[in-house]
Design a protein around this nucleic acid. Structure first.
Length: 422
RNA sequence: GGAGAUGUGGCCGAGUGGUCGAAGGCAGCACCUUGCUAAGGUGUCGUACGGUCUGACCGUACCGAGAGUUCGAAUCUCUCCAUCUCCGCCA
């Protein structure tokens, strides 16, 4: 969410952002509503002032004077009541539109329409050169009895998977490795609920637009989060913290749920695109300073790259263009890991800077040393997400017999094994 | 799932229809004091929005959230949320 005053004062900039992000939203309509609302509110305030002054007279008035005064007060009340529906309707409309107003992309963000316009900015690791016919990850999993796909779908619905044996341990090892790294970097490790109330999802910006991607539990009026970013973001909502408290760093570990509505037929095979997965998410709350944000954005990206390098995976970093970065974001990088069977890189990490866009939604603020109150900046990035990362681990580190060489950094978390075989 | 209690400013806590944006205390901040001194005194001390002769000014709203009663609500009513206690169930 942007400050309404900012939208009033920088209308062209905001309109440009709507255009760059391919959104259909009329800023002129928004400003019209804002203007109408202001006008109505001024009238309302004047009436309230009148009412307050009037009702102060009544206790002092004599018994004879009172009935007339009360009658007059009732009339003011009626005028106010008449105004109320208009004001609240306009407020509702304005709020609904404000939630959809995009953040202004960074000046150096690549301009583009969709993911095809994303820009590769870094590449690392050696692509594997197999001396045998490599298997895809599904073949490897089945050969080793490391996963079950066929029957589990009947039990749990489409895009289900069930890891088995060494794969369960490997999954946990990747999370353990990531958590240890983040702990060493000063992050607070938190295992968060996946359940969330509606306002928490509005707070991150997943709502109102991404509603159809989120599982809803009507009996309890709760949602299943698609990321552990949701909970830390709302945790400090309404707070005014001290500047010394910042930055606040979280490594959120949680199950994640995504409906994947509209992606029927895409990546239906294997572990790439599933409804339920486990993720460690890096989450940063820092002070309101673009430089500070930029610094953290780089730091978050760096951590993900360390993890990918520790896993000895070929990777690349792309900077997402304006059309692909999402409504709330100022700047966004994806880290993608090589998938040999597809001969392409697949997104495994997503690193976003949102400035105060989320903080305005949750109303998370801090007081600086001069006593001024500001909204915080927030950032997030994947540390590790399974099972998707397992795809690259399995396929890149496979041997002819179907066994898997374990990257050195992972071995301490796998009982010292150098290799696994089902 | 059943029964009950509670929810006031950074914290503690008063307040049961008007004089309450809210006593008092603690913490914080500024200044003063320096023979009551690991202390004392004075002042200051929420947020948002609107207005403005842009003044440290005026107004409006906010006492868990929302709705209602009333000329007037922190105070009365309803709904929701959270916390605590007891019972039930349970990994």
């Amino acid at each position: 969410m942007l400050d309404i005053k900012f939208i009033r004062d920088n209308t062209d900039l905001v309109k440009k952002a709507v255009e760059l992000k391919n959104l259909s939203l009329s800023i002129d309509d928004l400003l019209k509503i804002d203007n109408d609302l202001l006008e109505k509110k001024r009238i309302q305030q004047a009436l309230q002032e009148k009412r307050n002054a009037h009702s102060k007279k009544i206790p002092k008035a004599s018994a004879e004077e009172r009935p007339a005064l009360i009658e007059e007060g009732r009339k003011i009340g009626q005028d106010l009541d008449a105004l109320k529906p208009e004001v609240s309707s306009l407020e509702e409309q304005l709020k609904e539109m404000l939630y959809r107003v995009p953040n202004i992309p960074a000046e150096d963000a690549p301009v583009g329409k969709d993911e095809n316009d994303n820009v590769e900015i870094e590449k690392g690791g050696e692509l594997p050169n197999f001396s045998f016919k490599p298997r895809d990850h599904v073949e490897i999993l089945e050969l080793n009895n490391w996963a079950e796909f066929e029957k589990i779908g009947k039990v749990c619905g489409s895009r289900s998977y069930s890891l088995r044996n060494e794969m369960v341990l490997l999954e946990m090892a990747t999370h353990r490795m990531a958590l240890e790294k983040l702990k060493a970097k000063g992050f607070n490790l938190v295992s968060t609920p996946a359940l969330a109330r509606e306002h928490a999802l509005v707070g991150t910006g997943h709502f109102p637009e991404g509603r159809d991607q989120v599982y809803y539990l009507p009996e309890d009026d709760l949602y299943l989060s698609g990321t552990a970013e949701v909970q830390p973001n709302s945790l400090h909502g309404g707070d005014i913290r001290k500047e010394e408290d910042l930055p606040i760093l979280y490594a959120g570990f949680s199950p994640c749920f995504r409906r994947e509505a509209g992606s029927y037929g895409r990546d239906v095979r294997g572990l790439i695109r599933v409804h339920q997965f486990m993720k460690v998410e890096q989450y940063v709350i820092c002070k309101n300073d673009p430089e500070e944000s930029r610094k953290w954005h780089q730091a978050l990206l760096e951590t993900s790259l360390e993890i990918v390098k520790d896993l000895e995976l070929p990777y690349r970093v792309v900077e997402c263009c304006t059309g692909d970065m999402g409504t709330g974001k100022v700047k966004m990088f994806d880290v993608e890991c090589w998938v040999p069977s597809e001969e392409k890189y697949r997104e495994t990490h997503s690193c976003s800077a949102l400035h105060e866009w989320q903080a305005r939604r949750t109303n998370t603020r801090y007081r600086d040393k001069e006593g001024q109150v500001h909204h915080v900046h927030t950032l997030n990035n994947t540390a590790i997400a399974t099972p998707r990362i397992l795809v690259s681990i399995l396929e890149n580190h496979q041997n002819e017999d179907g066994s898997i060489n374990l990257p050195k950094a992972l071995r301490p978390f796998m009982g010292g094994l150098e290799k696994i075989k089902g």
